[in-house]
Amino acid sequence: MSVVDAQREESQLSLTIVKPSRGWAGVNLRELWSYRELIYFLIWRDIKVRYKQTLLGAAWAILKPFFSMIVFSVIFGSLARIPTDEVPPPLFYFAGLLPWVFFQDGITKASNSLVSGRNLITKVYFPRLAIPLSSVVAGVVDFCLAFLVLLGMMVFYGYRPTQAIWTLPLFMLLALATALGGGLWLAALNVAYRDIGYVTPFIVQAWLYASPVVYSATLITGDLWQVVYGLNPMAGVVQGFRWAILGVGQPPTSSLLASIAVALSLLISGVLYFRRMERTFADVV
């Protein structure tokens, strides 16, 4: 009884109004903040559960990009002999794969997050943004583990991080915004159209080849192509990543602004669309 009373005083009996909403809605940051513990627990759950009942556990966070690196090194490096900016192919691919895998995991998990979290959505209220947000952010842990391996590889190949390494978090933020923006769109669409679950792998695959992961951005020449390339935020992220760590290629200066603009508009439009569709999630999912 005393506990209830104390809470009553504390909460001043907040008033909740339930009524139909119309049109577009922005993000209720205050509400999102008040649910920060839930978001924290959802991220924590995603990390905890990710590699449960696997033999190798968290090692998969490293092995996933590592296997891709080996395949790329053999096929694109040794067989196709695609130039890798004078960097040993394994290091070149691994540095590109790190932000890419983070992005790929983030957007894939986010797009599926509402559907797999349907029993939450239909049973409890909380800001729905928490679900895709936590699936994207949970990937940061995987990224950090793999990053340690990258550092090890750099020691092995005798590379020292460049001065520009401080810009890395910026590129990570850009990747996160892009993954979240795309993920919000796909997640909200997936609720109504399960086709999205089938389409997402193709989007991700096409996106991979549209980003300089298996090749060097220096291959892209011509003003027109540069501009088109700048529209893909992940191109800026991957390119910038290699530049910041290995010091190869160009700093993505002019195209970076375009990348940021595109990523932000993807994120903002994603949030708006998500918030608009959010009201019907529980009915449709």
């Binding site: 008033l15 109004i17 049973k123």
Partner: peptide, 27 residues
């Protein structure tokens, strides 16, 4: 009332924190 879904019309005002037990073991 627990805001899981929105009404099509009308209004409800609720004073205080709401806990809902629509199914045990959610999540």
């Amino acid at each position: 009332l627990s805001r899981i879904t929105e009404p099509t019309e009308g209004i409800a005002s609720i004073r205080g924190r709401v806990g809902s037990l629509l199914e045990v073991g959610t999540g």
